Simulated assay, not measured.
Amino acid sequence: MAKDPKKYKRKKKLGSYHYVSVIFSAALALFVIGLFGTLILQANKLTSIIKQNIELQVYLNKDISNSQRSRIEREIASSDYILLTNGKAEMTFISKEEAAQQFVEDTGEDFTEFLGDNPLRDALTIKINESHQSNDDLETIKSQIQRISGVFEVTYVKNLADSINDNLAKLSLLLIGIATVLVIVVLLLINNAIKLALFSQRFLIRSMQLVGAKSSFIRMPFLKRSLLHGALAGLIASGLLYGLKQFANGQVKGLEQLQQQELVIALYGLLIALGAIIAYFSTLRAMNKYLKMSLDELY
């Protein structure tokens, strides 16, 4: 009875190797990079939110008229140091009556009962954009506003901006350092996974050389497959990140506010491109190595 030829070991095809393990290893490595990239994006968004809360309190003279207050608001709103949101200056007017009411709500004590008068002043709360948040800039802004007619006093929490900037700078350096180490580790992992996978093809590569095939002809199938497998690994990593993001959003309230959809999509595209590029050059490096090996070294 004739034996089924399919039961025998199949002939190896040029450019083929155990790609499942390579894709799996690369996807996990890229997932770690993507996860850390997501953390960096959210940290940057959180940094921006923190900086948007740096404020100046502008107290006005007690006898100021509505027209004078409007003039002060217009002058401050037209300055380059004020934070703009959708083209609108981030400035809030708080009357002395509102301030007194808020004080009563916070403390439970009505100071007007024993003082007989409200000593508080009308005030403007203005937010400063990120380019003018150093202590020197805030002092300059304070001096400029205090020179405006009708302004009694300008106050802010000194050293807060510099403290925030210093801490955020240290955090950024730490994140960049960790990201650099992660990228190097990922490069090594993917490179070693591909090199081990191609190890099984070393004799097929030598056979092609012996029949006169050019190195470029031998490399081409491997390089084409490496691009496909690397991109697929990046796609899988992006899918895992998306699933994790959706799960985290459902578990952590307010987390979506730290996510910028355009940057997240760009990160996914970067992972796919990074996977393809790393796989391509790792394959090219391994192929050049095996093409230059002698027969004794192949064993």
Rank of each mutant, 00 (worst) to 15 (best):
Y290K: 05
I72M: 07
Q68N: 12
L210Q: 09
I277K: 07
S143M: 03
I277Y: 11
S67E: 15
H132D: 04
D166F: 03
S143R: 13
S143H: 01
F281I: 11
S134Y: 08
Q133N: 01
M293D: 06
I272Q: 12
K142A: 10
K292L: 08
N53Q: 11
K9P: 01
V22P: 00
T47E: 08
F281W: 09
E109R: 08
S216Q: 08
A169C: 13
G116Q: 09
L295S: 06
Q102F: 08
Y17T: 01
V154N: 00
V211Y: 08
L274G: 03
F281N: 04
L120N: 10
S207Y: 05
I218L: 03
S226D: 09
L83S: 03
H229K: 03
I82G: 02
G243F: 06
I272F: 15
L227Q: 05
N192R: 05
M220Y: 12
Q201C: 01
A27W: 03
F281H: 05
T140V: 14
A169D: 13
Q257H: 02
I23P: 04
R74G: 14
S226G: 05
K195T: 14
N249R: 04
E130Y: 04
S95A: 09
F31G: 11
Y268R: 01
A161V: 06
D106Q: 09
E55H: 09
Q260R: 10
S200D: 04
N159W: 01
K158P: 03
L210H: 12
S200W: 00
N129W: 07
L241C: 10
K7P: 01
S149W: 06
K3T: 07
S226I: 02
L56T: 05
A100S: 14
L228T: 10
A2C: 00
T283C: 05
R71V: 05
I54E: 00
L228P: 02
S172G: 07
V252L: 07
T38W: 12
F199C: 00
L182W: 00
G230V: 05
Q209Y: 12
A237K: 02
P119I: 11
Y280H: 12
F247A: 12
N165E: 04
A27P: 03
I49P: 04
L175N: 02
L241H: 06
T180D: 01
Q133D: 07
Y8W: 10
G243T: 04
E75R: 15
M287N: 05
G87S: 06
N288M: 03
D137A: 14
V32S: 02
S163W: 07
H229M: 11
L35Y: 09
T47A: 11
L175I: 03
Q101S: 13
A89F: 04
Q68V: 10
G239A: 11
L255V: 09
L174K: 07
Q259H: 06
N288K: 08
A237H: 14
L244F: 10
K45R: 13
D117N: 15
V185L: 15
I126H: 02
H132N: 14
F199L: 01
R74K: 15
G87C: 13
A248W: 07
N61L: 15
A161Y: 00
D136S: 09
L204W: 02
E262M: 09
Q144R: 06
L188G: 09
H132R: 04
L258F: 09
K45H: 10
S215H: 02
G239E: 03
E98W: 02
V252I: 07
A237V: 11
K51R: 12
K88N: 14
I218S: 01
S79F: 07
A193Q: 06
A193F: 04
N66C: 14
